[in-house]
Design a protein around this nucleic acid. Structure first.
Lengths: 251, 251
DNA sequence: CGTAGGATTGACCCGACTCAAGTTAAGTGG
DNA sequence: CCACTTAACTTGAGTCGGGTCAATCCTACG
């Protein structure tokens, strides 16, 4: 586990200039809400690639919203087996479980340098009291996560290795595009080990399955990342319908 | 798909006599909250075993809290493959996804006769406005669901067939006991097909795996259900820690 | 007594795992 | 600039867990 990143209380990204707000997918705050969120915000966290943002089994007094970068959420078994349960992208709220439960039950690691917006968990109740619409948004985000997990579970439980992989790539591409992470070609900053640990497959078999997608010219391997050549075909191959969400909230 | 159950607006279980309230696990309502929830409640739904409570791809104007009975939440692929993503027990809130997203992305089917408390989805926002504590509880429930899904995903992705099965049985037993569903011995009202579809295994292999647990005298098969003989051993076998939650909310 | 949904079992096969050896590419320090 | 290290990616060989197919059995129920 690499060391924690830097927590700063000065603002590189004050809420009025939130890099998320400029994205069309996200709904806009009302002035009062912006005001509240601005006070709710405690600072910014900058972490390097590979850093642990949140650790399983700890109590963390913070809630985070991802502003920039990629990360993944995972669980470990005592003998070292790892299951990645989901990925986190800009706009995602993390640490909610830790706020409501006692200890957090999963870890989060950065896949790229990340910038996160830090909130005080103790303040969450006052958000609920003063801004029911924002509270509703928090629930919306939790519900959306649940929806993604359902889909991931379907994938790991019932799809073949090739379908699973195709689904995962299409899913991540779709999510990342939705928040404007790619200009032209999509390249996922993910190693084959990450794929394997997400799909419930071994590294070796994952590699061989990726080869099949490469042979079909659906993806390419570049600079230690996966370049997506045809996301639509991938989605179709997996039997997944990437129904794009409309506008969505964030905190 | 069997027909829907009966929706009644007269109250067999008025909120003041909610069968959940008497269970110690659930937190108590304040008088004002009870009052609100009582108005929020639209009626009661009684469904038979095998009935579909919620159907994937539909818009459902209701939210439900399970009062009595077992059910399961699942997703289907177009070729018929089924993945059960979780089970629903008394105290569980279902249909929240349908309230926040457009269409619901999963179905719910009754494993036993069920009684559900019906709420109007349109009223949810007023709950958020008038009772922040209850809103917080809704989020808590969503977050708890997320936590269970993470664990299920770990199981399907990384545990062996025997471990998975042991985990599932221990998990369900623990949940059901927590809400006081068993007096003495625990018997899960679940067929081997359900187990298979939860674990991501074939029916045949599930059967053979159950046999191993029977040989170890950890479970027994009775009356078309699974009688749990040693939940602790099962949990240990699977490497799962059934850390019991303390008091919890419900709506 | 017939039927149907579940549970069981055996035979056979294949998808995915493990083990083992590389290869490649990107540092890093002398 | 080169030797060394390390992380990530490849590939082949052999094995095995779990899948499929096909019967068969049990038991509740009409």
């Amino acid at each position: 586990m690499k060391e924690q990143g830097k927590l700063r209380s000065e603002r590189k990204y004050p809420c009025e200039k939130c890099p998320l707000a400029s994205r069309d997918v996200f709904r806009k705050f009302k002035p009062k809400e912006l005001d509240f969120v601005s006070r709710f915000k405690r600072g910014e966290l900058f972490v390097d690639k590979g850093a642990t943002v949140l650790a399983e089994g700890t109590r963390n007094p913070h809630l985070y919203t991802v502003l920039i970068g990629w990360g993944f959420r995972y669980k470990l078994m005592s003998d070292g087996r790892r299951q990645i349960v989901n990925y986190v992208l800009p706009g995602d709220l993390i640490g909610l479980q830790g706020t409501l439960m006692d200890e957090i039950q999963h870890s989060v690691e950065a896949l790229s340098p990340m910038t996160l917006c830090v909130f005080e968990r103790g303040e969450l109740m006052s958000l609920y009291r003063e801004h029911p619409e924002l509270a509703y948004d928090v629930t919306w985000l939790a519900s959306r996560e649940e929806c993604m997990l359902d889909e991931n579970l379907l994938s790991v439980g019932r799809r073949s290795a090739l379908e699973r992989l195709a689904y995962l790539i299409a899913f991540l591409t779709s999510r990342a595009r939705a928040v404007g992470m790619f200009n032209g070609t999509a390249t996922l900053p993910i190693t084959q080990q990450h794929f394997a640990d997400t799909l419930g497959l071994s590294l070796v078999h994952t590699n061989k399955t990726i080869r099949k997608l490469i042979d079909r010219k659906l993806v390419r391997w570049r600079d230690g990342g996966c370049e997506v050549l045809d996301a639509d075909q991938l989605a179709e191959l997996s039997g997944w319908d990437p129904s794009n969400e409309g506008s969505r909230p964030f905190i």
